[in-house]
Amino acid sequence: MAKILVLVIGLIIIGFIVWWFFGKHEVAEVSADVGDDLQSIDVEVNGGYSPETVVLKKGIPAVLNFTRKDQSSCLDRVVFSDFGVNQALPVNEKEAIKIDTSKAGEYQWACGMDMFHGKLIIK
C-alpha cells in the first residue's frame, strides 16, 4: 500500500515539475522610464532577473540598474556579450550598466555561468 502511494505521489511530483518548469508561462515585458536624454530601469536580481525582458527606445542613452538580492554565486556577474559588459554585482548594491542603444535589435544578457538569461529589446 505504502509503495503504491509513493509511486503515485512520485509521479504527481514529476508531472508538476514538468508543468512548472517546461510549461508556457507569461514573462513580463517592461519598458524603461524614458526621460529627455536618458532612459533607465531597475532590474532586481533574485533567483533570476525581474523584469526578465526590458524594452528600450532606440537612440536614447540607457542605464540598467542591477541590484542583486540573491547570495548565490551563480548570479554574481551579469554579462552582456554583445556590448562587452561583464559586471560584478555585489550583494545589495545598485550597479548601473550603460547600454549603447544606437542599434535596434534583440540582445541577450546572462549571468556569469550562462544559466540565467534576460532579454533586451531595443526598438
Binding site: W20, F21, G23, H25, N46, G47, G48, S50, E52, K69, D70, Q71, S72, C74, L75, M115, F116
Partner: peptide
C-alpha cells in the same frame, strides 16, 4: 540557507539552478 533562498526565488520565476 542562502542556497534555499536563491532556489526559492528562482522557483517562483519558473527557473532552476545549481542552488
Amino acid at each position: 540557507r542562502p542556497f534555499w533562498n536563491s532556489a526559492w526565488a528562482s522557483f517562483t520565476k519558473h527557473h532552476s539552478n545549481m542552488d
